[in-house]
Write a protein that binds this DNA or RNA. Structure first.
Lengths: 224, 224
DNA sequence: GACATTAGTCACATGACGTGACTAATTCGC
DNA sequence: GCGAATTAGTCACGTCATGTGACTAATGTC
């Protein structure tokens, strides 16, 4: 919700909201007031007495539905590259919305799969790339992938989410072994039949004990 | 070099400069203009047409001697905590200076070992802690420790530098094994005798091939 | 009921890591 | 000199994590 009444803020907050659409990552963009087919990453200026994170949450709420399931700062960007606001610097946040979050009505906002992202202002392009890189790095530390899934999910869905976020394929057996070692999920009594093939058991995110000294789970696991 | 003539900049650049002093990490602080014994992390406002990184380099240059051997952004901080400048937000950079960099003359700047850091403004304390955490995280990705050492060094010195930055002891054999696997150093013909004990071979930083698919060296190696 | 399809598991090879003990080269005290 | 102390450097072995292919299990389709 870029507010065009103020001119040239000193600093903007930009929010890269991601979700899963089918088997692709998608980012939420906002139609620019000028130009029919111009799109921007949602941004706004901080309001008085508002923390940066509060600003980011407000932008995310206005843009999508409800609060993002995860939100973290990516960094500050500037260095001369152009930004829709002409602000000197922009502080970027990355957020995740559960898959299935609908494109908000009105046509002002829309999800774009990563390969379909239209041309952005140079600084916003840089922000998008950095946000993706930041998420990939933080996946090792914190269980981010669950934020994109519903409460209950199959292990295959979870693995696909990891593959989406990491941008590479994982090996089934290795993935499940690592998952067990991390004590992150627990099985439920329910099963889901997806048409053909054996039904899959549903799991729920339930991180267990052993937080201390828990060395980040490494999912380098290659190929299929 | 906090410039007190401007009032209340919108955004400051703060630079956490680290070096090794003896067997401790030390941070460069600047004497606050008011109050004899108040110290601050060096900061300044951006100048017109200056990138953030250029500002950080300028601050580092003014504070210590020459350019820092490494400089990277940590993030943007604000959220109400107090800062010497009263600025809304501060963008923090972390930098490294080779060990042996002298305390600049004049008494305005001085190195403080981490355990001797005096009380700082709350936001600057947060910045310092985050900068340390950021360096520890990035050590895995990029060979930061070498920036603190001279061109040639012994493997024991290198190991001590890693221990300093990671804040924990490493096992000699494991450390060298991991180092070999990473192809980061090569031996020279020279040896150094340090008084008692067998002389140590000198090594030089020389990252070799195999950059692709090089999975970050994990140095979890515990105890002595 | 044979087959395709998807879920879930097993077993083995390979490599990384934690650890203690070993050898090597020097200085120091006598 | 000569042995003890000290520091450098290596080895070997046990354990655990990871890469990988093949296996079993349960369902739908024809």
């Amino acid at each position: 919700m870029p507010d065009r009444k103020n001119r040239r803020p000193a600093c903007t907050i930009d929010v890269v909201l991601l979700t899963a659409v089918g088997s692709q990552l998608a980012v939420l963009l906002c139609r620019a007031p000028e130009g029919r087919d111009k799109w921007v990453i949602p941004w706004d200026a901080q309001r008085p007495a508002e923390t940066m994170e509060a600003t980011a949450t407000r932008i995310a709420k206005a843009a999508s539905i409800g609060e993002p399931a995860w939100l973290e700062q990516v960094g500050a960007f500037g260095d001369g590259r152009r930004h829709p606001s002409d602000a000197e610097i922009s502080v970027a946040y990355a957020g995740l919305a559960p898959m299935g979050t609908p494109s908000p009505v009105g046509g002002v906002y829309a999800w774009f799969t990563l390969s379909d992202v239209p041309q952005l202002a140079p600084r916003q392009r840089q922000i998008l790339d950095s946000a993706l890189a930041a998420i990939r790095i933080r996946m090792d530390q914190s269980p981010v992938a669950f934020r994109l899934l519903p409460q209950m999910f199959t292990l295959t869905e979870l693995q696909q989410m990891y593959e989406l976020l990491l941008g590479k394929r994982l090996h089934k057996a290795s993935f499940r072994r690592a998952l067990q070692a991390a004590w992150l999920v627990e099985p439920t009594d329910e099963w889901r039949s997806e048409g053909r093939g054996r039904p899959a058991q549903l799991y729920r995110y339930a991180p267990r004990k052993r937080r201390p000294a828990q060395r980040g789970i490494r999912l380098d696991l290659l190929s299929s």
